[in-house]
Simulated assay, not measured.
Amino acid sequence: MMHRGTLTLALTLAAVLAAAPAAAQRAPREGRAGAGPASAQADSPNPVKRTWDFTKRFGIPRFDPQDCTSDPARLAAMLEDYNARVDAFLAGPTDPKKLGLERKNYVKQVLGTARDIAAWRETFEATGQRSPDSDVPPLAADICRAQMQRHQLLALRDGLRAMARVYPDMAEIAPQLAEADAALAQMGDDAAIRRKVEANRAAALAQVRMKPPVARNPALEKGLHDGFARLVPDETILRLHLYSSDWYVHRNAITSVPEYRQIGAWVATRRSDGTCWISGIDLWQNYTGGGFDAGEYKLGRAPQQILCENLPG
């Protein structure tokens, strides 16, 4: 049997629920700005609520480059969504007080873009440049790296433009926006980027030289020459310079007994397309107890291009 007090409480709760408007029981919870479509920001007619939700997620966007195949589409989708959210916010009522409270934070973000613009511009300008001894990646890799700097700048520029729409009187925006525009104009389109990278690579290539031999040993030189010819039969050997004055002997750390020895050389070659390259070759010989075996010839570091006219005579 239900206790009299319990019965009274149950009847009271039922009456309260029955009196509540049906629409209030069905009303969905407010979505957070940035958690759904851009139009979700217009769901609330409350200026304070809308402005609070918007400023929690608004700021200068940062694009994360990943690869040049997917980056353009990813960037376009990101900026389309970003600008749609700004459009949706500005199309409805806003709270000037809340925007005023957030202004200092946004000024800091705007001023911080100067460092990013300078860094991306510097990286772009240097892409393709390298020291004469550096490894040289494929042309496509350098072009991709240069394009990544432009992609990041495009996202930043849209952020500055959006900031100017939200804060039309923020004087700090115009100088940074001018710098971003100037940097993007300097980079140009894909064709201009390719020309820039190719020019940088050509200038770097012109500085490549073959190092002089550190020693002479006709027997070792002949062995390395013949070994390279067997490993790379489709290239013509032009020069061979020993880069070791003597054998490097690797010994056991505990017993000091030799385990193997190695000696090598730089090899300059001409390929069938007329280009010249510098490669490395090494002779590795294992210690057998009473001496070293005949060993094995192995190619060294990746080939590096050199202008044929810059090879020693």
Rank of each mutant, 00 (worst) to 15 (best):
R301C: 10
R195P: 01
V16A: 09
H151E: 05
P72W: 06
Y260I: 03
S70C: 12
P175S: 02
R195I: 09
A155V: 06
S244T: 13
A229F: 04
V107L: 11
F124D: 00
Q129E: 13
V232D: 09
I306T: 02
D53Q: 13
T69V: 10
D116T: 14
W266R: 04
A146H: 01
A114D: 08
R150N: 07
R157D: 03
S39G: 12
V166T: 08
G159S: 10
S134I: 00
F58N: 00
R239P: 03
N217T: 11
Q207L: 10
T113H: 05
D71S: 01
D189T: 01
Y248I: 13
L11P: 10
G100D: 07
M78Y: 08
Q41C: 13
P21R: 03
R32A: 15
R85H: 10
F54M: 07
L75F: 00
V136Q: 14
L11N: 11
L99Y: 01
R150V: 05
K98Q: 15
A19W: 11
P175Y: 03
D190N: 14
S256Y: 13
I281Q: 00
Q305T: 01
P138Q: 12
M148R: 05
M163E: 05
M1W: 14
T113D: 03
V107P: 00
E309V: 08
M2S: 12
Y106Q: 07
G280L: 06
D135C: 08
H250R: 15
M148A: 09
Q186A: 15
E102I: 09
L240F: 10
G59P: 01
R145H: 13
D226H: 10
A88V: 05
Q109S: 09
R161L: 15
F89E: 04
A40T: 11
D226T: 13
P137E: 15
Q41A: 12
S244P: 07
F63G: 02
W247G: 02
P47D: 03
T69M: 13
A73W: 08
T8Y: 13
A91I: 02
A18T: 13
R4Q: 14
I263L: 05
A155N: 00
A203D: 09
Q41R: 12
K97E: 11
P28V: 07
I143G: 04
R4L: 14
R26M: 15
D53K: 07
W277S: 00
T123K: 12
A23Q: 15
V166D: 06
R271E: 11
A84G: 03
L111A: 06
D226M: 09
L231Y: 08
L156N: 00
A19F: 08
H225W: 14
K211I: 11
L90Q: 02
P218G: 02
T6D: 15
A10Q: 11
C144P: 04
Q66K: 13
R85A: 02
R261S: 01
G188V: 10
G159E: 03
L153Y: 02
D158E: 12
W120Q: 05
K56L: 08
V110R: 01
R130K: 10
G280W: 03
Q41N: 12
E102M: 15
D181L: 04
Y106A: 01
S256H: 11
P218I: 02
D189V: 04
R230E: 14
Q147D: 08
P213I: 09
C276K: 00
C144L: 09
R57E: 07
T69I: 15
L139T: 12
